[in-house]
Write a protein that binds this DNA or RNA. Structure first.
Lengths: 187, 187
DNA sequence: TTATTAACGATACTGCGGTAGCGTAAATGG
DNA sequence: CCATTTACGCTACCGCAGTATCGTTAATAA
């Protein structure tokens, strides 16, 4: 079939495990490719044959670690939206800020990394968009712009606080964002 | 008065000029401290006696380059807000994305850099907040959350698009954000 | 068996940000 | 004049991400 020496299928797992440990201990900066290679018992060059850069390795790593929490809509848009935005805020606060910022920087440099990072959020992004559209059809949304923009106004502030202003992402803040889009509860 | 050898006052200007040229040519990554020092005719160690890191040098640099466009409120909140948000979007698109992303990453690592970066935006941030508060007092804002949150929902999406989704920041998008907060024009 | 193809390990290298140490130059206080 | 203090230039060094090269190994095709 394929001509040459086959790839050692055990390598990928060993490297990802080693990288996960390094990332856990020292964050993005603390993760050294040399140390990952040594810990995995693999040559550094072999590592670069699998992932083109440190950023791509980390993206593959967190894409591997992530087990997406399945989201089951309750039918109540306010409740669903609050749950989703709160969950995103919780994920962002649980992740080291330097990791997110460094991935954003890597995404700005290498388009492939940008696509990978965006793919990580695709599922949640779709869920938020669907709930927003649903809420808008039900006449629950104050403004009349497209759902995509509303999603930006729900999720964007989280990244803005995290990466720019440095303010905390409390669950209460997430609720406030939803309240701003849907208006105050009426009961 | 002060005891030892005084600092050469010409050095700071020469270094900033050299750094500006390097930044212009190659962006954040292309700016090499060694080359800046060589171009300025200054030892690298001297450079590090003035700025603690590459990020701090760049922050000082763009803080130096910036000449803030004075903002004179027209009294019409919709017009003022549109102008401000559009101006911020224009600044963000005019600045290389990698530069913004790398500064955000540096800010996440070094708190001092974060403060410096935030100080660069303080003036515009205050202006947006003031206009939003004014619009809210006039009853022009759809939602009733605090002005700070509304500012996040106006500015946050710009950074979100820039750093996360990679979508473009058109003037039309800025107008849409304002329209989402203030509602459609009525005349 | 032999030739070919591709993966692997190993070594060495580049340019980078950042640091340490040292000799020297320029100022002030006695 | 001389001691002290600080800035400067210089050299050397560290760990890092990433690349190039080469000998070797494991597979397939003939």
């Amino acid at each position: 079939m394929t001509r040459g020496r086959p790839r050692d299928t055990a390598i990928e797992g060993k490297v990802l495990a080693a990288a996960a440990e390094e990332l856990r201990q020292g964050g993005y900066d603390g993760l050294s490719i040399d140390r990952v290679a040594e810990r995995a018992g693999v040559a550094k060059t072999t590592l670069y044959r699998r992932w083109a850069s440190k950023a791509e390795l980390v993206v593959a790593l967190i894409g591997n670690l992530r087990q997406d929490v399945p989201f089951e809509p309750s039918g109540d848009p306010r409740r669903d939206l609050t749950e989703l935005v709160t969950a995103i805020a919780a994920t962002l606060t649980a992740t080291p800020t330097t990791l997110i910022a460094d991935l954003a920087a890597a995404a700005a440099r290498e388009p492939r990394v940008g696509e990978s990072v965006r793919a990580l959020w695709a599922e949640r992004h779709r869920a938020v968009t669907a709930v927003v559209a649903h809420a808008q059809e039900a006449g629950l949304v104050l403004s009349h712009v497209s759902p995509a923009v509303l999603v930006d106004q729900l999720v964007g502030p989280l990244y803005y606080r995290l990466l720019v202003t440095g303010e905390p992402l409390s669950p209460d803040y997430a609720r406030t964002l939803v309240r701003s889009v849907l208006g105050p509860e009426e009961s």
